[in-house]
Structure formats: C-alpha cells, structure tokens
Amino acid sequence: MVNVSDIRKPNFEVSPQFINRWSPRSFLEREIPEDVLFSLFEAARWAPSASNIQPWRFIIARTKEDLEKFHSFILPGNLVWCQKAPVLAVIASQKTTERGFNSWHAFDSGTAWGHLSLEANAKGLITHAMGGFDKEKAREVLNVPEDIDLHAVIAIGYQGEKDALPENLQEREQPSGRRPLEELLFEGVFKNTENA
C-alpha cells in the first residue's frame, strides 16, 4: 500500500484525516458490516445545510441484483475498476422546496459527500466518487424524479492491491497532489492565476 505522507506534504498543519483521504480504485470484494457502512451515511447526515434543508439523498446498492443495476449506467472506464466495490451509492439532491428552487442543493450535497468520505477513511474504508455515469439512464433505472439532481456514483469498500487493477490504472493508483494555496486563496479581490 502507498504511504500517503511520502507523497502529500501540507504547507500548514492540519488534521491527518485531510491528507490521508484519497480516492483509490482497487477494491477488495469484501462485505462491509452494516453498522460500519451506515456510520458513513450518519456522518453525511450531520453535514451543515443552508436553512437546514438537508437536500442530499443517497441510493445504495449492496446486493448482487442492485449492483448489477448500477453497473448498467456506469461508463466502461469506471466500471472496469468499480465493479469489485461491495457498495455503490448515488449521491443526489432535492432541487426544490416548498419555497421554490434551492440554489444551495449541490453545495450542501458536496459537503455531505465530504463528511461521508472522511468517516469512511476513519473507519478503514476507501471511497471514490465518479462522474463517469449516464445520468439519464441512472434516473430511469433508479426511478429518480426530475426534481432530484444526480451528482456522482461513489464506490465504497476496503482497499485492494494496485496490481489487481488493469495495467493502465496501476500507475495512477496513488494519492494526487493539490494546487498551492496561493492559487486558491486571495485577499481582498479575486486574481486569475490561470493566465498569469
């Protein structure tokens, strides 16, 4: 397994949970105990939310039949590695409320995903969120109404060895770096660092 601290070096001291969490692709075909699995969604449940609307929704697959449904809308480049994950989850969000459109639905749902991913890491699990899926087919297969926005499919499980992956993915099976803080943080006004 990869030693994350050899690759990721923060510039300022932060909790190790932020450095150690990354998105591997190699999963063991090993069942996750229900109490451990549901603790991830419990962590997501407690994410902050604008006006406490809590728009996030999760649809999970953990039986052979449900996993095959999910496999039907995941694009081939992702299916090649995620089909070994014992749990797949679609993260979605309710776009409307009784007061109308909720412009914060995606922001809040991303926060819930962050909570889930950090809790998974704390429990010895890995997660990998992917946008490579057919949203319209997923909507149809999972019977999702139009006022629900589909964001990502999340693979959840225990980490496997990188040599279990196809050769072209083995070289990518390591934590990625991050942009330097000065490209992300501005004081007073925005600065375009892309064209500088």
Rank of each mutant, 00 (worst) to 15 (best):
S72D: 13
E68S: 07
L184A: 07
P10V: 08
A152I: 04
V4G: 13
D147P: 05
D66E: 14
P48G: 12
R45E: 09
I74T: 01
P86Q: 03
N143V: 03
G132L: 01
I156P: 00
F41L: 11
E173P: 00
K191H: 15
H115C: 13
D66P: 00
L165G: 03
S117N: 09
P86Y: 04
R45F: 14
A120F: 08
N52M: 14
I7Q: 08
V36L: 11
A164F: 01
L165F: 03
T127D: 01
G160R: 06
N3G: 00
N3A: 09
R30S: 05
N20S: 11
G157H: 06
L142R: 06
I19D: 12
G160I: 09
S51Y: 15
S49C: 05
V189F: 14
N121E: 15
T127A: 02
S117I: 06
W81V: 00
L28K: 14
F133D: 04
M1V: 12
F73W: 02
F12L: 14
I91H: 01
P16M: 10
A85N: 02
N78D: 07
N52D: 12
F107G: 02
N78Q: 02
S103D: 13
R21H: 08
P180S: 07
F12S: 14
E42N: 09
A112N: 07
G77M: 06
W81D: 02
S23L: 02
L116Y: 09
G188Y: 08
V80I: 14
H128K: 00
V144P: 05
S109L: 04
Q159C: 07
R62E: 07
V80D: 02
A61V: 11
S72Y: 05
D35H: 11
L184T: 10
I148K: 10
K84D: 02
E140W: 05
A155W: 03
S39D: 08
I59W: 07
R179K: 15
P180F: 05
W113V: 15
E31W: 01
A61M: 11
